[in-house]
Design a protein around this nucleic acid. Structure first.
Ligand code: SF4
Ligand code: SF4
Lengths: 137, 137
DNA sequence: TTTAAATACTACTTGTAGGTGGTAAATAAT
DNA sequence: ATTATTTACCACCTACAAGTAGTATTTAAA
């Protein structure tokens, strides 16, 4: 019952770039600031770029920044690009053959929590996350 | 963001035995009824027995049943025996060095959901789970 | 006493998230 | 042009959850 670590990495770097728009940041700079393994962050950046969240400039002095055409980025977009949204669209366990009439043992307790989690994933965007904290990252 | 599959196995078999108290069930019988791999269920049963939830009778005609001294079994006990309770006692990400003043990017949204999840894990017991459904299992 | 059916235990296999390392290609500074 | 710094890409490694296989041990029925 936890988010994937890679998802937190992705959100961390996206929040960072969101709050530093207009400047290019290389993986080398960011991995120190955000405390994420260098090479692994490189792969995450590649994924996030492929998902359309970022603009890249290759070569010396290059780096990443938020895609200027993005006026909002919701958590579900990022989570979807990294670990998928199955847990929120279906359920934690995700048995394909289940329903209210044919539930697994966790259905009752989960169906109480599902809406809140779904709401937080679908209705929170990067602005909401970054504003409230003075992130060290 | 999902429970471990083994946790669902454990809850499934515990609910089943809870609702069939006073009779011994072998792994061979249960794995067919509950649709859990035979050998894997055997290991889960061994773990659950070690945690004190079950009484065992070895040998022919043997099997498992709920420990008669248990008048209630809460979900946190079972989850704790299988995958641990770190996610509920600490948080989804569980960084040791975090706090409200030093949060990770997910702290805000998670701290909205944490109480509800914690409540469901700590205040729901097997009676609550089994009563509501006509489980095929 | 023999046999069948059960748990107990150990080792192995598989799939995947997380992480490491090396190199090719791009590109700005020199 | 050369060099340094960067992304892009590919192959591999590691840890762990999930699942498989086989055997020793226990025990009741026959
Ligand atoms: S029965 Fe409910 S909790 Fe179980 S897998 Fe289906 S939707 Fe999820
Ligand atoms: S900062 Fe909050 S969400 Fe992040 S690891 Fe700590 S308690 Fe969890």
């Amino acid at each position: 019952m936890r988010f994937q670590k890679t998802t937190e990495y992705a959100l961390r770097v996206m929040v960072f770039l969101w709050n530093h728009q207009g400047e290019l940041y290389s993986v080398n700079r960011m991995h120190k600031i955000l405390n994420i393994p260098y090479k692994y962050l490189g792969r995450v950046m590649h994924t996030l770029t492929g998902a359309g969240f970022l603009e890249v400039q290759q070569g010396k002095m290059g780096g990443y920044q938020i895609n200027a055409q993005k006026s909002q980025i919701y958590l579900y977009e990022i989570i979807g690009a990294i670990e998928g949204l199955d847990s929120y669209e279906r359920c934690v366990l995700g048995f394909p053959e289940c329903s209210d009439e044919n539930p697994c043992t966790l259905h009752k307790i989960w169906s109480n929590q599902q809406p809140g989690l779904k709401d937080m994933v679908y209705n929170v965007c990067l602005n909401d996350l970054g504003a409230e904290y003075n992130l060290k990252y």
